[in-house]
Amino acid sequence: MDLTAAARPFFNMAVVVPSVLFKVRPLAGAPLRATQDPRWVRWLLTGIALGFLGFFLVLPLVAVFGEALRRGLGAYFTAVGDADALASVKLTLIAALISVPANVVFGVPAAWCIAKYSFRGKSLLITLIDLPFAVSPVISGLIYVLVFGAQGWLGPWLIEHDVKIIFAVPGIVLATTFVTFPFVARELIPLMQAQGSEEEYAAITLGANGWQTFWRVTLPNIKWGLLYGVILCNARAMGEFGAVSVVSGHIRGETNTMPLHVEILYNEYNFVGAFAVASLLALLALVTLVLKSIVEWRHAQAHAA
C-alpha cells in the first residue's frame, strides 16, 4: 500500500511536463532548484532554522514543564488541584465554550455574505471583522469598561437592574469573543471566494431552498476550513491575556482565567504553581496543535481524493 511510491511518477511528470512544454529558462547564474545549493549552505541554513526553533520554541516549552515538576509530581498535582487553579481552568473553559460557538454562528454567515454576494458596504464589513486584529487587546478591554463600567454609558442602568458585566464572567466572555472574532470569518472568506458560487447556483436551479443549499452544498465544502478556524479561535480564546486582564478585576478563584492566574502565582513567588498552571495551558496548546495537524492532513486527503 505504498501510495507515495505509486504517485511518484505522476508527480515527476507534473514537474517535468510544464518545463518541457513552456521551456522554463533559469535566470542567468541562478540555480534551477534549491537543492543544487552547495551542501554546506544547506546544512548551515537547516542548522540555523533548527537552532532557532529549538531555542525559541522547544527550550521554553521544556523549561515550563521542568519548572512545574521541579519539586516533584506531588507538588505539581497539589498546585494543579488547588481550588483557585481549578476555578481558573473552569472559567477559561467556560469563556472558550461560549465565545467559540458564538464566533462560528457570527463568522459563517459573515463569511457567506462577503464571499457569495456583493453589496454596498461590503468593504466596511470586512474592515469591521478585521478590527479586533488591528486594535491592541488592552484597548478592546477598555472599550468594554467604557461601555459597561459603573462610570460608563450603560453602567448606571446595569447597576440599577443588578446586571453584572465587567469584573464578572459575562465581561470575560465578551472580551474573549471580541478578540477572537476574526478567526473563523477570516479563515472562511478566502476559501469561499476561491470556491465561487457556481455550485450554489446549480443547487438553486435544481430547486433547493436557501437552507438546503447551505446545509448540503456550502457546508460540506467549507467544513475543513471551518474546523481549522474553530481550532485557531479556541487556542486564542484560552490564551487571551490583555483584554481579559482589563475586565477581570482579578478576584482570586472567581474572575481569573488561566493566563491571569499564572501571572498572580508568579507574582506571589509561587513558581511551581505558576508553571504548573502554565503547563496545563501549554498542554491545551499542544492538543490544539495536534488537532490542527490532523485537520490539515485530513483536508489534504480530502482534496487528493
Partner: peptide
Amino acid sequence: KQSHGGSGKQARGVIDG
C-alpha cells in the same frame, strides 16, 4: 475573596464597578 494589583489601578477598578 482577594483582588491585588497596583493601588491606583485597583481604585480605578472599584470606581468602574
